[in-house]
């Protein structure tokens, strides 16, 4: 028989030994629970981000204004935009491109807004020194990150969430100068 129906009044209060194991199990749960915020603060691997609701057309209009006022050149057809140190920077995923290319100064903090105008995308920032940061980007949500580049160079952005026929060409760049 795979299981048996126990006799009535089968429940017995835990004895001393069982209580010790319950206590050890509970304490370990607390250790694991508090290790998450502690690692978040001291591990320096998890990013703190904020999310807001935004209409894709409003975000797109803000990106166009950002490009218009801060553009310093072009890489092919894609504008290179240099935000003010400490200021807001915008990157938009849509139409199989991360737009525009950002040019940042090493050691300065920026408030980076990322959103999508069409589908769900995966913002995957990759560069030298093994940098690999990934964020889910959804249309209708402004994903806000405070970033301080600590290494100069070229950082590539790829889309790592399948988004359609030209997902494989969806790339972007962040340039960091000394």
């Amino acid at each position: 028989m795979s299981f048996m129906i126990p006799e009535k009044d089968w429940f017995k209060a835990p004895d001393k030994g069982e209580k010790s194991w319950i206590a050890i199990g509970f304490i370990w749960c607390l250790v694991l629970f508090f290790s998450m915020p502690i690692w978040h603060i001291y591990g320096k691997q998890n990013s703190s981000s904020e999310s807001y609701r935004v209409k894709p057309e409003d975000f797109s209009a803000r990106v166009m204004k950002f490009v218009e006022t801060n553009s310093i050149g072009k890489d092919g057809n894609t504008p290179i935009v240099q935000p003010k140190p400490g200021g807001h920077a915008y990157v938009m995923g849509g139409g199989y491109i991360w737009y525009p290319i950002l040019k940042l100064k090493k050691g300065n903090e920026y408030i980076l807004h990322i959103s999508s105008t069409d589908y769900q995308h995966g913002f995957s920032l990759q560069g030298e020194a093994g940098i690999n940061m990934n964020f889910q980007i959804l249309p209708g949500y402004d994903h806000v990150l405070k970033i301080t580049p600590t290494t100069s160079g070229t950082f590539n952005i790829v889309c790592n969430e399948f988004c359609g026929a030209r997902h494989h060409v969806m790339t972007g760049k962040i340039l960091v100068e000394d």
């Binding site: 999310s51 807001y52 609701r53 409003d58 975000f59 807004h113 402004d142």
Partner: peptide, 8 residues
């Protein structure tokens, strides 16, 4: 309950 983005 997410707030609307101010887009500064």
């Amino acid at each position: 309950s997410l707030p609307v983005a101010p887009l500064p």
